[in-house]
Design a protein around this nucleic acid. Structure first.
Lengths: 149, 149
DNA sequence: CAAGTTCGTAACTAGAGGAGTTACAAAATA
DNA sequence: TATTTTGTAACTCCTCTAGTTACGAACTTG
């Protein structure tokens, strides 16, 4: 898993979970989908579990599943669960008391607030089911997938 | 200068330049405003110069100035000159041929495109002159600034 | 023209952050 | 009970970026 591609990787494995329907997928299998390590998957997926997006179970036949139907999971939910802002610029005080800095920070904070609202609104329109449907459309057109769900 | 605060820092020194009107500010002075090193300022400001936002001159009385009136410099110009997307998530292929991945990447790329358009549109509404005006408003209210322009 | 300023840039160091890895305990199931 | 699988801590490794040092080039002023 390369840098800054967390959202992309997570969506990838979540769509695989959506396709797997009622059977659980192990961290090991999920990790293979995105060419990474099982521990990395558990680590990241733990955040999704806390957000109520996936569930995990141990032991035989254990693994990961969606906690609710993919129609009810939006990209906004997932993005929020990852806990990082999509706009990761920071507005930290460097020169306490400088009024120029205060004006700049005020403007940027306003912008960030508005921008995050806009982005979340857009992301909330896309569900995991939409992605899964697009996958199936591609599958029917081309007829193969290197690693089937 | 702390991580991910480049836009904020750059705006800070640009507003100082706007306030300095026709006299050039040295890298040394600009660096002090944002508690960093003169070389770091030159490095970053070089990008702004290439984008036609600032000019630099060497020797006595040399330093940095805005290349055009602050009314004509928008935050969108500056953000673009910094060369980094405000949405730094990446969509790299991990599993070539996987149709799930293709569907995810297609959706994210669409989202990114639309999001960048929206953000640029918002940033284009704010000019350096707006920030400078807000600074002066604050200055008149409180009446002091720890490091005057 | 000489002295002093200031930028331009290359080269290196240092530190932070995140992924990858190993190891092992805990829980679940067959 | 044996096996599977998650949970998590601890560590290494890699990459990115800021910070720093050093020195040459360009410019101004007296």
């Amino acid at each position: 898993m390369k840098r800054n591609s967390r959202l992309c990787s997570i969506l990838h494995i979540l769509v695989h979970m959506a396709e797997a329907k009622d059977s659980a997928l192990t961290s090991e299998k999920l990790a293979a989908f995105i060419s990474t390590n099982a521990v990395v998957v558990r680590r990241t997926a733990a955040g999704l579990r806390e957000a109520g997006i996936v569930t995990s179970s141990r032991g035989h036949q254990g693994g990961w599943q969606l906690a609710r139907p993919p129609e009810e999971i939006t990209l906004a939910d997932i993005s929020a669960a990852l806990g990082e802002s999509l706009l990761p610029f920071s507005t930290e005080r460097e020169s306490p008391g400088c009024l120029v800095e205060e004006a700049v920070i005020a403007a940027l904070d306003d912008f960030r607030k508005e921008a995050e609202r806009l982005l979340a609104e857009r992301l909330a329109r896309i569900t995991l089911a939409d992605l899964a449907a697009d996958f199936r459309r591609r599958f029917e057109l081309i007829g193969e997938s290197t690693h089937a769900a």
